[in-house]
Structure formats: C-alpha cells, structure tokens
C-alpha cells in the first residue's frame, strides 16, 4: 500500500512522481480503516486545490454585486433613473406645452411681471406666462442631452489623446501632454466662455461643444496616467513576452484596465457639465431660443426677477443640484467599488 505497483525505474523523476502521488492518495493512516468514512474522504482536494465550478465572475460583475448593496449608489442611481425617465416622458405628462404662454393675460410688466401659483399651475408661470412646472419637466430632456453629449464628447476626445500618449509614450506622449497642460492651465469656465463666444450664433450645440472641449484635457491626463501605469505592469510585460501584437496589447490589456478612473470621472463630469451648461446659459451664451426650456437657461432668465420672485431661480437650481448630486453619488460609489484595494 505504500509503494507504487509499477515497475521501479529508480532515480527518474517520473517514477518518483508516481510513487509520491500514490503515497499522497493512500491517505490511510496506520491504525485506521482509511476510505471507509463515506463522502468525507472522497472529497480530498487535488494537488492544485479546488477550483469552484461554474462561470467566472468578472471584475465588472463583482463590482456590480458590491454596488447593488451600497445604499449611496442606490440613492444616486434612483435620482439618475428618475431624471432620465422624466426626460423621456416629460412631453407626455407635462400639464401644459412649455412654449405656450397660457397665463400671458396675467402678466403685467409693471404690477405683476410673474404670475404666482394658482390652481392648474402649482409653481406659477414665468415672465412670459409659461407654466413653470411644465417647463421644468420638459427642461430635463435638454439638460440631459447637454450633460450626456458634452461628457461623451469630452470622453471621446480625452480617450483618443490619452490612448495615443499612453500607448506610444516617448515624443508622442510629450507633445500630447504639453498641449493638454496648456489647455488645463486655462480656467475651465473661462475657456468654455471663450469657445462658446467664438461662434456667431450661440445654440445648444455650441454649449455642448464648448463644455466637451473643456473636459478633453481632464480625461486625457487621467487616462494617460493610468495607461502608463498599465504599460509598466507585469501583465502587459507578459503579453509582450508572449509575442502579442501592439494593437491588442493596447486595446485588450491596457485600455480596459485603465478605464476605471475614467468612467468614474465621466459620471462626475456629467454633473459638472450640467452646471457648466447652466452657467453658460446664465451668462447668455446658451441657446437663445427659449421655446425648448433647459434648466440653466431658466435659471439665467430668472435673473431680472431674482429680487421679487426668487422662486423662478430656486426651482431650476434645485433640480440641477439634485441631479448633480445623483451623478456624483453614483460616481463616488463607482470609484469605491472599482478600486482594487477595497475589493473583497
């Protein structure tokens, strides 16, 4: 029972392996009737240890599992979902057309510039007699559009630059990063104003473009940093040693592993993009056509009436704050769950 039944070939490792494996599997200790204990003994692990059966759980998946139990994330996500749903269905459920001047007959420039709350118009109307509640609801759509498109634009531009710099390194990296540094040295809002002001006629697209360009260097620098970290990681070295081509190394190994911080940043930028859009609109660089309302624009238009009728400004401001908070909470909890140090 101790020795392998095989014909001995003394000295060769394979023989020793067989002998030792036999030794290891004949677990019966002296004095006990080994193997008769039922299921227990049969489940002794293999040399390498047990590998759980079933599909593997990817990092994204395990991050999601953690997020599902995180109330901060759930709270933020609830706000975001509510916001998106509102943006989609607002035209259907809004009590009035946001462009129709339903209460224009109550507007009197001297005595009553802004009609107050009344039955059918719980938040009142604005200086043109348009229903504020309806405008807020429909405004969600424009606001979302501006936030998402500006962020996506910034993300795409930043990813292109960051990937270039991080993947090639050397002089490409130097050139790209100096340009990025110059862009970063200009205060972001100032730059957004300048870009938006360059266009002859401001529109919602100029706002989106301006904010997107402002975000490009932020994303580029972030991605470049984490791409460089990946570039020096062992698993990229392993792929190089394996003879994997440059393209797959960059797009299969470096980029996906470098994306975590960028995705987190994107959710945070979504919030600031909405605020920046509001600022641009507030300063008159937004969409001049106020028939399709946008929160920032509403805030800007409320400016002349701020002394007498602050509620005109407070409602859109509250909306912006709540939505920005939603995206920020989502971003922060994403950051935590994607951080490898907080794993397990």
């Amino acid at each position: 029972m101790t020795d392998s039944p095989r014909r001995p070939m003394p000295g060769t490792p394979s023989h020793k392996k067989a002998r030792l494996d036999a030794l290891a599997s004949t677990a019966a200790p002296s004095g006990s009737s080994g193997g008769s204990a039922g299921g227990g003994v049969a489940t002794a692990v293999s040399d390498a240890g047990r590998v759980a059966s079933g599909e593997g759980v990817s990092l994204w998946m395990s991050a999601w599992r953690r997020l599902r139990r995180d109330w901060v994330f759930l709270f933020g996500a609830a706000i975001v979902v509510l916001f998106i749903v509102l943006a989609v269905v607002a035209p259907l459920i809004a009590p009035h057309d946001p462009a129709t001047r339903v209460l224009i007959d109550q507007v009197n420039r001297q005595t009553n510039p802004v009609p107050g709350p009344q039955p059918g118009h719980p938040l009142g109307a604005d200086y043109q007699g348009r229903d504020v509640l309806s405008r807020l609801m429909v405004g969600a759509r424009q606001t979302l559009l501006v936030g998402v498109l500006a962020t996506l634009g910034g993300l795409l531009g930043g990813m292109t630059l960051g990937t270039l710099a991080g993947a090639f390194g050397g002089w490409v990296d130097s050139v790209v990063m100096r340009v990025v540094d110059v862009l970063l040295s200009i205060p972001s809002l100032l730059m957004a104003f300048s870009i938006a002001a360059m266009f002859r006629s401001p529109s919602q697209w100029t706002v989106i473009l301006a904010i997107a360009i402002v975000q490009v260097p932020v994303f580029a620098r972030l991605l470049r940093g984490s791409m460089l970290a990946q570039r020096h990681s062992d698993h990229v070295l392993a792929a190089r040693a394996l003879g994997v081509r440059k393209g797959p190394i960059v797009f299969r190994h470096m980029l996906p592993n470098a994306m975590g911080p960028v995705i987190v940043q994107a959710t945070l930028v979504l919030a600031t993009a909405i605020i920046d859009a509001a600022a641009l609109s507030f300063l008159g660089l937004g969409n001049p056509d106020d028939r399709s309302p946008e929160w920032g624009q509403m805030l800007g238009n409320a400016q002349p009436y701020f002394d007498s009728h602050p509620h005109l400004a407070v409602y859109p401001a509250l909306c912006i704050i709540v939505v920005a908070l939603g995206f920020t909470l989502v971003g922060e909890s994403l950051r935590e769950s994607l951080d490898p140090k907080s794993r397990r």
Binding site: A27, G34, G38, A44, V45, R50
Partner: peptide
Amino acid sequence: RGSVADNIPWDHACAFAPRCHQEGEKC
C-alpha cells in the same frame, strides 16, 4: 496539496483535512 483556500471550518472537523495526506474517518 491545495491551498489555505481549501480549508474547512474547525466546528466539527479538522480545518486541514482536505489538504491532509493522513486524513482518516474522524477528520
């Protein structure tokens, strides 16, 4: 054989049993 990940709880067993070459019925 195996690794620490293969341990079983001490409650009614020996935690080392799954990795043990001497494992018997009581383990």
